[in-house]
Computed example of a mutant assay.
Amino acid sequence: MNIEQINEGHKGYFKASENDAEAGRMTYTWVGDTKFIIDHTEVNPEFNGQGVGKKMVLAAVDYARKNNLKIIPLCPFAKATFDKNQDLQDVL
């Protein structure tokens, strides 16, 4: 599965794809220069149960760590992922 990040000024998203099919998308909004809010995570139904949402959250965490950023998970899925994984707390 390929995860790519697209920044579009004040907003952006992480897109998961496999074999040229979009598996999911997680959108975010920048809050200043050092934080972003994950506001929505959506997985296409044919990819349910394959961990697509978590892979996108982990890609966001990796991006935040590499760029010394913080994440505010307002999306219920992203928030639940952070709550269940203590090793992700450093980017909150």
Rank of each mutant, 00 (worst) to 15 (best):
I3Y: 00
Q5G: 01
Q5A: 03
Q5L: 10
I6S: 13
I6C: 12
I6V: 15
N7A: 13
N7Y: 11
N7L: 13
N7H: 15
E8I: 09
H10N: 14
H10T: 01
G12T: 04
G12F: 03
G12K: 04
F14C: 03
K15S: 00
K15T: 04
K15P: 01
S17T: 12
N19K: 00
N19V: 06
N19F: 02
A23H: 04
A23C: 09
G24I: 12
R25N: 05
M26N: 08
M26A: 09
Y28E: 08
T29C: 00
V31S: 06
G32D: 12
D33Y: 10
T34Q: 06
T34Y: 10
K35S: 14
K35Q: 15
F36G: 04
I37N: 11
I38T: 07
I38C: 12
I38L: 15
I38G: 11
D39I: 10
H40V: 07
T41P: 00
N44H: 02
N44P: 04
N44S: 11
P45D: 04
E46L: 09
E46D: 14
F47A: 07
F47L: 07
F47W: 08
N48I: 01
Q50E: 07
G51I: 05
G53D: 06
G53M: 08
G53K: 02
K55I: 05
K55W: 03
K55D: 06
V57L: 02
L58T: 00
A59Y: 13
A59N: 12
A60E: 03
V61S: 06
D62A: 14
Y63D: 02
A64V: 07
A64K: 08
R65W: 13
K66P: 09
K66M: 09
K66Y: 08
N67L: 13
N67F: 12
L69F: 11
L69H: 06
L69R: 09
K70I: 12
K70E: 12
K70T: 15
I71L: 05
I72H: 02
I72R: 05
I72K: 02
P73V: 04
C75H: 11
P76G: 03
P76D: 03
F77N: 02
F77Y: 15
F77D: 03
A78R: 02
A78G: 08
A78P: 04
A78V: 07
K79T: 10
K79I: 09
K79S: 13
A80C: 08
A80T: 00
A80S: 11
F82P: 12
D83N: 11
K84H: 12
N85H: 15
Q86I: 13
Q86D: 14
L88D: 07
Q89M: 14
D90T: 14
D90M: 06
V91K: 15
